[in-house]
Design a protein around this nucleic acid. Structure first.
Lengths: 211, 211
DNA sequence: TGGTGTGAACAACTTCACAGCG
DNA sequence: CGCTGTGAAGTTGTTCACACCA
């Protein structure tokens, strides 16, 4: 949020997230200071990259010393927006959706599934292992507004992904995590992150094929 | 596989995978010919990008016409290695692992979960909804060799990810899809694709925070 | 004519190398 | 003295613009 200079490369944000998770581990291990060299080797990136990434937002280190773990972690959390709780709404409660809603690594980091929607009448009213009760998709707009849901997670079949996204956008939800294997359209200002299982697997297959 | 010129950008492979999936849809829709402009709009990329990507592997189009959908799809499948079946081994059968093993989009594209391993004694011998029977991790090396497993999927807790990877590497498995929220080390020649849920969510949170 | 294939221009990102400071 | 912060150099990836050909 301080944002010292102009545009921040998307890749920088992705790495900031990575740094945060390694710093979390260092903090747990009671490490108080870390150099860009050390953090870089933990993250498998170039040390200069870390220093450059941070300069987009300010100066967080001490020359001749390094970075204070707790302080740097605090700053990165503030930049990303991890100093608060985010309410998520899940659309499509199949095997994958259920696993996601109950995945503890999300809640640990402040991402809370607060509502789940499906259009299978047999699922409505059912309680997930994590305690969430499945609501009909017709309730999506009302519930998302009521519960302050700002991030949507789409885990429907491919054919249903676009309509789920359209609904979320109309709430309005301006950030969507898409697990469905489909390309979805959103208006300006809405950010979509697609978790592309097929893309990852295809890259692995290519690696094995091209040798 | 034809590989006309030197190094292929990783991003090109990721896009090839994307093109393949859109072409699959075009084929299903009985479309026989597609221009780079049309395909580009379906994939939300620049048309020149598509043509450039393809030149790394050969010339697949017809000037003044475009690309024959079926032919181009065939060629891309051959490049990626999707003209065959890949056997996958799953390590860590929690909620997420179960959802993955039973996820039909994998098998549809030739990625077949052929074995699943866990170290919880209560799970061993249990059958997953998809029919797979969970084996003890001690059986991993033997089973992977026996079943020709070339791709590993790691869905263990973070603390267990590195040991799962080490085991897979010793099979040897040279391609690993990692769902655990941990940075893992692999030797030269082994490719890891990490499905980084936290990274995606953090990017979305940043998007919402920085405005 | 119309759309591909591609060198050349451009833009973005990464790494280097070192000045500057605690 | 050591490690950060950063301009400049280097590298990689993307887009343009047009020659070329079915």
């Amino acid at each position: 949020m301080p944002l010292k200079s102009g545009r921040v490369p998307p890749a920088t944000i992705t790495r900031l997230s990575l740094y945060a998770r390694r710093l979390e581990e260092l903090k747990t291990a009671r490490t108080t200071v870390v150099s860009s060299d050390r953090l870089a080797s933990l993250c498998q990136v170039n040390p200069a990259q870390i220093r450059k990434d941070l300069t987009y937002f300010g100066e967080f280190g001490v020359r001749g010393v390094g970075y204070y773990v707790e302080e740097l972690l605090f700053q990165i959390h503030k930049i990303i927006g991890l100093n608060r709780v985010w309410n998520l709404g899940l659309v499509g409660v199949g095997n994958l959706g259920t696993a996601l809603a109950c995945y503890e690594n999300f809640s640990k980091r402040g991402y809370l599934f607060s509502a789940a929607f499906d259009n299978d009448p047999r699922k409505i009213g059912t309680k997930l292992p994590c305690g969430l009760i499945i609501e009909p998709v017709e309730r999506l707009i009302a519930t998302c507004r009521e519960l302050d849901i700002e991030i949507g997670a789409v885990a429907t079949p491919a054919e249903r992904a676009q309509e789920a996204v359209d609904l979320l956008v109309s709430v309005p939800v301006r950030a969507i995590l898409n697990f469905a294997p489909a390309q979805v359209q959103v208006p300006e200002g809405v950010e979509v992150a697609s978790v592309d299982f097929a893309g990852h697997l295809d890259r692995l297959a290519y690696h094995l094929t091209s040798r």
